[in-house]
């Protein structure tokens, strides 16, 4: 197929994850009054980052197997 779909998905989630985690660490905590006092940016950013990295790992493994 040329491009394993897991690579762009992984890439997008990793980048958004990093953005959210970074923002979650830096931003004023007052904004989390909305989200019941939970720093959703940080936590959900971490989840997305983990998911993104797993997708990239799977995508690359499939790619390597294809080349062999």
């Amino acid at each position: 197929m040329g491009l394993d779909i897991r690579l762009p998905i992984g890439g997008l989630f990793t980048i958004i994850g990093i953005l959210l985690v970074g923002y979650g660490l830096m931003a004023d905590k007052a904004i989390y009054q909305k989200s019941l006092g939970i720093n959703v940016n940080l936590w959900w950013g971490l989840v997305m980052l983990a998911f993104g990295l797993i997708m990239i790992a799977f995508g690359q493994r499939a790619d390597r197997r294809l080349k062999r």
């Binding site: 958004i16 979650g24 931003a27 904004i31 989200s35 019941l36 959703v40 940016n41 959900w44």
Partner: peptide, 11 residues
């Protein structure tokens, strides 16, 4: 708009 602060709101 009710639950998401800026950041995840963009998502």
């Amino acid at each position: 708009l009710h639950y998401f602060p800026t950041g995840i709101l963009g998502l």
